[in-house]
Amino acid sequence: MTSLSLIGGHVSVTGGLAKGGLRSAADIGAEMIQVFVTNPRGWALAAGDPAQDELLRASGTVTFVHAPYLVNLGTPSADTLEKSVATVRHGLLRSAAIGARGLVVHTGSAVSQTREEALRQLRERLLPLLEELPDDGPDLLLEPMAGQGGMLCATVQELEPYLAALDWHPKAGVCLDTCHAFAAGHDLSTADGVRETLDRLHALAPGRLRLIHANDSKDVCGSKKDRHENIGAGHIGAEAFAELMRHPAAAGIPLCIETPGGADKHREDIELLKKLRDGL
């Protein structure tokens, strides 16, 4: 029997990581959560509140942390690189403190340097962080992007050189964003497209899929535009998410929405995904 996926969303932690996060989760009917543990649009690193950390750990809620958007381990800027490394290390430590399963990090851009130079740099700076992780610690979850600019990884195929640069480290997992994958050219709007994408991911990196960002897309397949839409309201369509959950490679993998709107829209998206899941 196929394992059922927990369905939840990225939640606000206003009022405290545990108090605010768990209240937000209850408001939208989330079975799992993703949170920021520091400012997502800045470099200042928040220390956290041990009491809130313990409350969240004790709740048993399946949790993931998303790294700030500024992180880019492929950058040619020495300053940005140092801040990115420090931010990822901080995120991994905070993930461990709250009992999170993993830290989601965007796979980044080479900007003005070559892909080979960026991947070599990635190996030099990211591999040591992976080596620091204990076996029971959080995973580092690589999130491929939509393909704009000099992105290092957008398609499933581009995960291969990225993971190879990290020596296929066992703590390097994958977070698949459906909007990003669709924008990068994987046609998830059809059952065949969903199966082909997940078949390819499983063949390339078996067992490394640890989280799915479930987002519909405002733009067409291959647009290279990262614009999320509510479930069933975009070009991917609701049925694709049922097909996604039906695939063996996604069995038991949590789905986390990052869709537009407030609590009411998020509750609707989660309810729709639960309905699709429960109908499998």
Rank of each mutant, 00 (worst) to 15 (best):
S3D: 14
G9W: 14
S24L: 05
A26Q: 09
D27N: 13
I28K: 07
A30M: 08
E31C: 09
Q34H: 07
V35P: 05
V37C: 10
T38M: 11
R41I: 12
G42I: 03
W43E: 04
A47F: 07
D49Y: 03
D53Q: 14
S59Q: 13
T61N: 00
T63P: 08
H66I: 07
V71D: 01
N72T: 08
T75A: 06
P76K: 08
S77Q: 15
A78P: 00
D79L: 15
L81N: 00
K83C: 00
S84Q: 01
T87A: 15
R89E: 14
I98W: 12
I98F: 13
S112C: 10
A118S: 15
L129C: 13
L130S: 06
L130Y: 12
E131A: 15
D139T: 06
M145I: 14
A146D: 08
Q148R: 10
V156H: 10
L163D: 10
H169G: 02
H169P: 00
A172E: 06
D177I: 03
A183H: 09
E196G: 06
R200K: 10
L201H: 04
R210N: 04
L211I: 11
K218L: 09
D219L: 05
I231R: 01
F241L: 00
R246G: 01
H247W: 13
H247I: 11
P248E: 11
L255V: 00
P260Q: 11
P260H: 15
I270K: 03
K274H: 12
G279F: 12
